[in-house]
Simulated assay, not measured.
Amino acid sequence: MPRKLCLPAGVGDIGLRLLNDWQRDFPLESRPFARIAAAVGMAESDVIDAYGELRTKGVVSRIGAVFAPRRLGASALAAMAVPPSRLEAVAARVSAEAAINHNYQREHRYNLWFVVTASSAERLQQVVAGLERDTGCAVIVLPLEEEFHIDLGFDLREPAGEGACNSPAGRRRERASIVLDGDAACALPAIERELVTALQGGLALEARPFESLGKKVGLSEAMTLEFIARWVCEGLIRRFGVVVRHHELGMEANAMCVWDVPEQDVSALGRSLAREHAVTLCYRRRRALPDWPYNLFCMIHGSAREDVLAARADLAQRLGLDAYPSATLFSCRRFKQTGAHYLSPGALAHA
């Protein structure tokens, strides 16, 4: 089924390439925008200006690193069942927390869903406790236990069907699922933690962004590039490139689809589900019994609600997922969407 993009006015074929082709494999070199400019036939300064305009319009969130979950600290998906009359006030309190990077209303009794990232499991628990204290709403916490497909690179050229994985942004890279344990976080040296902290907000849109990034923490441009390239190779950085916002690109419908699958079956089903072109995220999370029995999650994005429902029905029927209890939670409102901030200058000072 085609994804009906809604690109900003004036964005033509070259603009589409700027959005699509460098969602991963962004040039890790001194003048990355000059390399992109040579590829698309533009001047370096025009490429930088174009990305600046796309960021101003909200289509580009940032250019930078998407870190692998729980490699730098602790993270978890969390949810609250908020009385509708209090939803906006509670959502505002949640969004005000620096440790929250995504905060959405979804169609369910658990109607407020957010992602918590922190430097440690203890700090994450403190954030959750503070939210519960200030809002009076209980929080269910659903840590990631196994990842099948977590990337968030959107192919903007192809339909969300056959052939969708052929472009650089949409290509699936076959690899084994990753089972995470409670000690998955990396113990990075202090200088690397400082660089991660500076990198979390994305690159500056200028000719030599890695030089500017390194200066923030007292590193040379060459050493900054060396660290980032190593993190990409080691998998600490899941991808490095342009991070787009799907809603601003016309993918206005998205649903979190969940199933209650026996533990002995969930890994095999998750790997099969992750190979589906319509699936943009897929993972296993810990249940929160008795209130939340579901352990297999995937996200499906589309142009319209009926497209998402059709894709979900098709893959569930083909993979035999209809045999398990399930729920489909459409997003209603986006209260907050930023990059994950595992580390902060304050946290570093006490690390």
Results as ranks from 00 to 15, higher is better:
residue 312 R to N: 12
residue 344 S to Y: 01
residue 69 P to M: 07
residue 6 C to D: 11
residue 300 I to V: 15
residue 264 Q to Y: 10
residue 344 S to P: 03
residue 341 H to P: 07
residue 286 R to M: 11
residue 64 G to K: 05
residue 277 H to L: 10
residue 120 S to Q: 01
residue 33 F to S: 08
residue 258 V to Y: 04
residue 100 I to Q: 06
residue 132 E to Y: 02
residue 234 E to P: 00
residue 241 G to R: 10
residue 315 L to G: 01
residue 65 A to M: 03
residue 275 R to N: 15
residue 131 L to C: 03
residue 264 Q to M: 07
residue 55 R to M: 09
residue 143 P to L: 06
residue 245 R to A: 02
residue 179 V to C: 13
residue 8 P to Y: 13
residue 187 A to M: 02
residue 299 M to K: 03
residue 72 L to M: 08
residue 304 A to G: 10
residue 254 N to I: 13
residue 78 A to G: 02
residue 341 H to L: 14
residue 131 L to M: 00
residue 116 V to N: 02
residue 208 R to P: 04
residue 300 I to P: 07
residue 268 A to T: 10
residue 198 A to H: 09
residue 199 L to S: 15
residue 135 T to N: 02
residue 2 P to N: 13
residue 93 R to N: 05
residue 147 E to Q: 14
residue 216 K to H: 13
residue 169 A to M: 01
residue 181 D to R: 11
residue 317 Q to E: 15
residue 164 A to L: 12
residue 80 M to N: 02
residue 32 P to T: 09
residue 351 A to P: 03
residue 151 D to R: 10
residue 83 P to C: 01
residue 19 L to N: 06
residue 115 V to A: 06
residue 97 E to D: 09
residue 93 R to H: 07
residue 154 F to E: 09
residue 199 L to N: 12
residue 98 A to M: 12
residue 136 G to K: 02
residue 103 N to H: 08
residue 31 R to Y: 08
residue 10 G to V: 13
residue 337 Q to L: 15
residue 142 L to Q: 13
residue 121 A to G: 08
residue 191 I to T: 15
residue 141 V to K: 06
residue 133 R to C: 03
residue 250 G to L: 05
residue 238 R to A: 03
residue 246 H to N: 02
residue 315 L to I: 12
residue 45 S to A: 15
residue 117 T to P: 03
residue 50 A to D: 13
residue 128 V to A: 08
residue 326 S to D: 12
residue 280 T to I: 10
residue 136 G to S: 01
residue 136 G to N: 02
residue 34 A to F: 04
residue 345 P to I: 03
residue 303 S to Y: 05
residue 12 G to F: 10
residue 234 E to L: 01
residue 166 N to P: 04
residue 26 F to E: 04
residue 124 L to W: 00
residue 117 T to Q: 09
residue 233 C to S: 14
residue 218 G to F: 13
residue 344 S to L: 05
residue 176 A to G: 11
residue 155 D to M: 07
residue 218 G to K: 10
residue 62 R to E: 14
residue 161 G to I: 14
residue 169 A to F: 04
residue 158 E to M: 12
residue 150 I to W: 13
residue 69 P to H: 08
residue 158 E to C: 14
residue 178 I to A: 08
residue 190 A to M: 12
residue 301 H to C: 11
residue 169 A to L: 05
residue 341 H to A: 11
residue 46 D to I: 05
residue 313 A to V: 08
residue 141 V to S: 06
residue 111 N to L: 04
residue 317 Q to F: 13
residue 126 Q to A: 15
residue 37 A to L: 06
residue 5 L to N: 09
residue 338 T to K: 15
residue 306 E to I: 12
residue 304 A to P: 10
residue 203 L to N: 06
residue 230 R to T: 13
residue 61 S to W: 14
residue 223 M to K: 14
residue 55 R to F: 00
residue 31 R to C: 09
residue 87 L to W: 04
residue 27 P to Q: 01
residue 135 T to Q: 05
residue 245 R to Q: 07
residue 54 L to K: 00
residue 131 L to R: 00
residue 261 V to A: 06
residue 257 C to T: 10
residue 47 V to A: 01
residue 235 G to C: 00
residue 165 C to W: 14
residue 30 S to P: 03
residue 258 V to R: 11
residue 246 H to G: 03
residue 106 R to K: 12
residue 96 A to L: 07
residue 55 R to A: 11
residue 349 A to G: 08
residue 268 A to D: 10
residue 216 K to E: 13
residue 1 M to S: 08
residue 96 A to K: 14
residue 284 R to V: 09
residue 4 K to P: 00
